[in-house]
């Protein structure tokens, strides 16, 4: 935790998020050494363009995992929201601003349903959100009949805010990176500094203990589900605006990639211990690996093998550090 000051590099490496940070530097360094283009402005700009879309979802997922739950429906929400927004705008003539508000309401609804079923009926979040994934994805496919829609391609305040871009020197920077930065800062504050962060960690660590101290555990969980859905919808809109397409299958498999980012960063899959810094590092790492592996010439179809192997290696490393930390 950030409030345990312990000097010395060896001690620092034992903190999961710092171990991930060191690994990130090693991974990026290796790719840079193997291919000079890895750190070229064009490639860095590319990596940073993709980063916020999964990274923003990963922030919500970090808080949710820390509280002991997770959400498999984020990828489907990422796909559904832009599709609904664009259908409303293009087929029903709804104003874009209003359509976005409706999209937001859909996210809140999805989160509420997930959260209420998990907390009030007591079904595991794995099963609830897996079912929700199928419902949402099915809905997106049904209302579009499976075809991608052209997304909003007119310039406008929303497009500029979410997916606008500009150049800093040779680097093409997207507005979404600022959203990611601000939201990361907020999430880090919530988890490490605010009262609610103490509650979130306590709920994931020992729910009964938290409840016995008057922590409204179920309420906190429900709102974390809502937050995660809203972030997934926001990420979906950013992506749709950036590529000017809203596809009903967008975000397929993102739920697992996001969870991988979070746990690679050092957040415990079974709750109680979460780190936003680790998640930012994890997001950078997975994006970096995906991009770097292609650049160094691994065949496109083979690269999931490497991504999976690297994730597995990272998790084994965290487990080893965790055990040595307990003995030491």
């Amino acid at each position: 935790m950030s409030d345990t000051p312990k000097p010395g590099l060896a001690a620092l490496i034992k903190v999961p998020q710092y171990a991930s940070l060191v690994l990130l530097v090693i991974v990026l360094g290796t790719f840079a050494a193997l291919n000079g283009d890895f750190l070229s402005p064009l490639n860095v700009s590319n990596m940073l363009a993709f980063l916020p879309e999964l990274g923003i979802i990963a922030l919500g997922m970090t808080l949710l995992l820390t509280a002991g739950e997770f959400d498999l429906s984020v990828g489907a929400t990422f796909g559904l929201v832009p599709v609904v927004v664009m259908l409303l705008v293009q087929n029903a003539g709804v104003d874009l601003g209003l359509a976005l508000v409706i999209g937001l309401a859909i996210c809140v609804l999805i989160g509420l349903i997930n959260g209420l079923i998990v907390t009030k009926i007591g079904i595991s979040s794995f099963l609830v959100t897996l079912s929700m994934l199928m419902i949402i994805r099915g809905a997106a496919l049904y209302i579009t009949q499976g075809f991608p829609l052209a997304s909003w391609d007119q310039p406008g305040i929303f497009v500029t805010l979410l997916a606008g871009d500009f150049y800093i020197g040779p680097f093409r920077v997207y507005a979404s990176i600022f959203w990611f930065a601000v939201l990361s800062g907020l999430a880090g504050y919530l988890l490490n500094r605010a009262k609610i962060g103490n509650w979130i960690s306590a709920i994931g660590s020992n729910r009964n203990a938290a409840v016995a101290r008057g922590v409204p555990a179920d309420k906190v969980k429900v709102w974390l589900f809502v937050l995660t859905s809203v972030l997934a919808g926001l990420a979906g809109m950013i992506s749709a605006f950036r590529i000017s397409t809203a596809s009903p299958v967008a975000g397929t498999g993102y739920e697992l990639e996001v969870i991988a980012m979070v746990v690679v960063g050092g957040t415990a899959l079974n709750g109680g211990r979460g780190t936003i810094l680790g998640t930012v590092v994890g997001a950078l790492m997975l994006r970096g690996i995906r991009n770097g592996i292609v650049l160094i010439g691994v065949p496109g179809l083979a690269y999931n093998i490497f991504v999976g192997a690297v994730i597995l290696g990272m998790l084994m490393l965290h487990a080893a550090l965790q055990n040595s930390g307990r003995k030491g």
């Binding site: 935790m1 409030d3 509650w199 306590a202 101290r213 922590v215």
Partner: peptide
Amino acid sequence: APDLSIARNLFLG
């Protein structure tokens, strides 16, 4: 809550 520090447990809630 085992993952929280002693201080944070003492004042939980």
